[in-house]
Design a protein around this nucleic acid. Structure first.
Lengths: 360, 360
DNA sequence: CTGAAAGCGCTTACAG
DNA sequence: CTGAAAGCGCTTACAG
């Protein structure tokens, strides 16, 4: 315990001095370099390190080695359970692979997003996994040319070469319409928070294409979007759904017979909003969600929805990043397809009403 | 663009060379030091920095300044929505205060937990916000003596001086029993995943004290705990609840009339498990949750529960940490109290059955 | 097997 | 207002 005055944290040189060896030797022992060191010396160094409570300084090491085990993660919004599940998948895989996660929620603000990206560059992260509200190829290219590997998910950034996890949002939109159409619906609406991300845009496009495929005219009377700017706060999505239910229920001359919600949470809001107005789901209107969150199977009516594999998306993104880190320049695309999960919130429209499905 | 051979990232010295000034001057300009620099020089430096695409290296700066804006966060389990909400509160406040979050989920493994803590020390974080599966005062004291501020939540670590966000779990357990007792229940059980954290222990203690206060004998036939070691995986809690429902339903000579679940997700599992066995909630058995997750108000029957403010806990923890960083040694304790949120999953026991409450 | 020395990118007394 | 120099804690050719 022969340390300096002001309870300074011991460094490699403190240990070196105590052991009567050079800093280089201590470094070789303590960094598991595999470099040969006489066994007696090694033992002494390890013992002294322990005795003085030595903690390696990763900053010093990083500066010297110019490498990092940190991965930046930029998500639009932690209050949406979808992203929370992505994060869980990411974190699980990161842990398995030995990476640390630097989290940066953008709160759906492009400014914050850009700042987070720059912050990550500043921190010299090895790579970043991002889902952007306002994809900016130049910003991401800057990171890449700074040696930072990028992986995106749920979006392809125009003009950027990088690995990504794709999801076919357009197919999801079509699948939604197909399901509702098969149930007998012809007057189908789309409910969403503002279309501020490409994934939403694709979903909406798929929805419209789905309508077109069945000869159903699209148009503004089918599209119900949130206007609030209070996004990113907990409960925004569900509240938006509640409000949209009011607008849907008030549409003249008549209420749509089915609604496709841009995510499960919005669907919950719709169902609640409808209930408050005495509109029954699925008796009066069918509600189809998107995401298949874990608890979507627990609500009543159990939510019919389109599965969007969240955990798997996060885990896959982390794996792709790890691959890209191991093999710079490697670009891989992993694709997930939508899958229909029919439950109880969708049923044939009133005239042809068939018995409801079970709740469990 | 007069940079070195191998597309090395430009440093302060590259800019200095191009501008014909010293590195010190460039640093003064680019680090917003407030140090006086001739305006013409300043402008030139800024322009060149932009031109060469300079990105400050936070590692170099951290090593020199010995300070960090990183905060470590150690959570037991991201698959539990409670912690997810805590994280959201934390992250929101961290963003507001200008800190970056280094995330480390322990997956409920004490080894992983200890490793994460050491990793954070290594990374020279300014502080850490932790909820530990196996609280270890020595481990945390080591961080503190290394200059890292610690804030805990939902637990007080024996023998550790630090700011913390407390929650009165014992009172929550008592409140649960009081509510169920007031409804007429006398045969009340407790259902939980393994009691591996002090908070769970306190909740259970409160439950038992609550029983005792009403002269209801405790005992093993009232305590139903998960045995699985598959904790930390998504869906563990709900699956555990489903399994426990089976054990509860099969208890002889008779099924309890009410169950207090250690968290809302377990309660969902219970309700599902009961439903699968034809046991109705609340008609045959009342289920009371704990947490009041956002979606607990959306399920059917709407979950009666005890509120445990998650977002607020995370935000408060971050604020306390910020205070402690600003004023080293400052120890503050912020307390949250449990609050009953009666909904539809609890009702008087069968014999005295009264009309059910509404679902919304 | 060991050490002296340079250097990772930055900041900051110190001297002018 | 500016610069030379030292140093944050570490690693790693290089020489022995």
């Amino acid at each position: 315990m022969a340390l300096d005055p002001k309870t300074r944290k011991p460094t490699i040189y403190d240990i070196a001095r105590i052991c009567g060896v050079s800093g280089a030797t201590v470094s070789r022992v303590l960094s598991d370099s595999g470099y040969p060191v006489k066994e007696a010396v090694r033992a002494r160094v390890v013992a002294v390190a322990k005795e003085v409570g030595y903690t390696p300084n990763a900053i010093g090491r990083m500066l010297r080695r110019r490498e990092s085990a940190d991965i930046g993660v930029v998500l639009p919004n932690l209050s949406n359970p979808y992203f929370t599940s992505v994060l869980l998948g990411l974190e699980t895989e990161a842990h398995r692979l030995g990476y640390n996660v630097l989290l940066a929620s953008s709160f759906r603000d492009p400014e914050t997003e850009a700042r987070s990206l720059r912050m990550l560059a500043t921190k010299q992260v090895a790579g970043a996994i991002v889902s952007l509200t306002r994809p900016d190829a130049n910003l991401l290219k800057d990171l890449q040319s700074g040696g930072i590997a990028i992986v995106t998910f749920d979006q392809v950034v125009e003009g950027l070469k990088c690995s990504r996890v794709e999801f076919d949002f357009e197919a999801a939109g079509k699948l939604a319409v197909a399901h509702l159409h098969a149930l007998g619906h012809r007057d189908i609406a789309f409910a969403s928070s503002p279309i501020d991300r490409p994934s939403r845009r694709s979903l909406q496009r798929g929805f419209l294409e789905g309508l077109a495929a069945f000869g159903i005219p699209g148009g503004e009377h089918r599209i119900f979007l949130g206007t609030s700017e209070a996004e990113g706060t907990e409960g925004y999505e569900v509240e938006n759904g509640r409000r949209l239910a009011g607008r849907l229920a008030g549409r003249s001359p008549r209420v749509p017979t089915a609604v496709f919600a841009a995510n499960d949470v919005t669907a919950f809001g719709l169902i609640q909003g409808f209930a408050a107005l005495g509109v029954r789901v699925p008796d009066d209107v069918s509600v189809l969600g998107f995401d298949d969150l874990p608890f979507s199977a627990w609500v009543t009516p159990a939510l019919s929805t389109i599965a969007h594999p969240a955990f798997e998306t996060g885990a896959a993104a982390m794996r792709l990043l790890s691959d890209a880190l191991r093999e710079p320049g490697k670009v891989t695309v992993e694709r997930f397809a939508p899958r229909l999960v029919p439950r109880a919130s969708c049923a044939p429209p009133a005239p042809w009403k068939a018995p409801q499905g079970g709740t469990t």
